[in-house]
């Protein structure tokens, strides 16, 4: 048995296409990303941790991860409900509603940013109303969460919707014939089966929210220690020519993001073991 890199194939063009892929991948993605690693190592171990453990940085982490978590949680609840609506309920014009769900993906973040800021500002359409019942959204952590709900909204819907569409109605019939009430069928059969896509959607929405910049900065107010998100802090450091500091924070953020993706993959391969049909 000799080591074989590639199984033989009659199709041409393998060397050319793979070579081009690797070259392009290396130049556009890997080379710049390696700059990140090298630059952060310039700080040394101590310097790296001094940078990311600075109170202002820590406050931004807490805010960014906290608001992202909250926004993703809200999207789990409402996203699942919207997915249910789109799959299970008859309603005129549902195709249009279905298409509009993707707006947060399609709308440039700067546009959603100024729109949300305008909407929730103290004299904006919703701002006036919320102010009157004592809720302040713009320039608060709540405002940041609102923006993150907006940009993460399609994820849970788009992961749960196909799962619900493909769910075998016979499973519900089986549960029902065994004596389960509608509520029992929902909690014991439907929701457990929707759990993998819900968790995937949650993780995707969370990961996206952590790195979000454009839709947040207009509504955030950007007060250090209070409403300053990590992405903005990186830009601030850059503007002060503190490349190493900016890089350290970016690396910390990236590590968390990659850990999350790893977690998704692990979870999916774990759940895939016995959840395949």
């Amino acid at each position: 048995m000799s080591f074989r890199f590639k199984e033989s194939s009659v199709l041409p063009g393998f060397g050319l296409s793979l070579g081009y892929t690797l070259l392009y991948l290396g130049l556009i993605v890997l080379l710049p990303l390696s700059a990140l690693v090298v630059k952060s190592s310039e700080l040394g171990f101590g310097g790296f941790f001094r940078t990311i453990l600075d109170p202002r940085v820590l406050a931004s982490f807490k805010l960014t991860f906290g608001a992202s978590l909250a926004a993703a949680a809200v999207n789990v609840v409402f996203g699942t409900i919207v997915a249910w609506f789109l799959v299970r309920i008859r309603f005129p014009g549902k195709r249009v509603i279905d298409a509009i769900v993707d707006l947060p993906f399609a709308l440039p973040t700067a546009v959603s940013g100024i729109a949300l800021a305008m909407l929730y500002s103290p004299n904006g359409k919703l701002g006036i109303f919320l102010q009157s019942i004592g809720i302040k959204v713009a320039f608060t952590q709540l405002g940041i969460t609102v923006a993150l709900i907006f940009i993460g909204l399609p994820f849970v819907i788009r992961t749960v919707q196909p799962a619900l569409e493909e769910m075998d109605r016979e499973l519900e019939e089986a549960a029902s014939s065994l004596g389960a009430s509608r509520t029992q069928t929902l909690t014991k059969v439907i929701l457990p089966l929707l759990m993998p896509p819900i968790i995937t959607g949650f993780t995707l929405a969370f990961a996206r929210a952590v790195g979000e910049y454009g839709s947040v900065i207009f509504i955030a107010g950007n007060m250090p220690m209070k409403t300053e998100i990590t992405s903005l802090l990186i830009i601030t450091k850059l503007e002060q020519y503190d490349y190493a500091g900016a890089t350290a924070i970016a690396v910390a953020m990236l590590v968390v993001s990659l850990a999350l993706i790893l977690l998704i993959n692990l979870f999916q391969s774990w759940s895939g073991k016995h959840l395949v049909r």
Binding site: L171, E173, A174, A175, G179, R277
Partner: peptide, 15 residues
Amino acid sequence: RQVGFVFQHYALFRH
């Protein structure tokens, strides 16, 4: 109704 129904494609709960 307390009927035992067996489905063609089993409809076992895979979770």
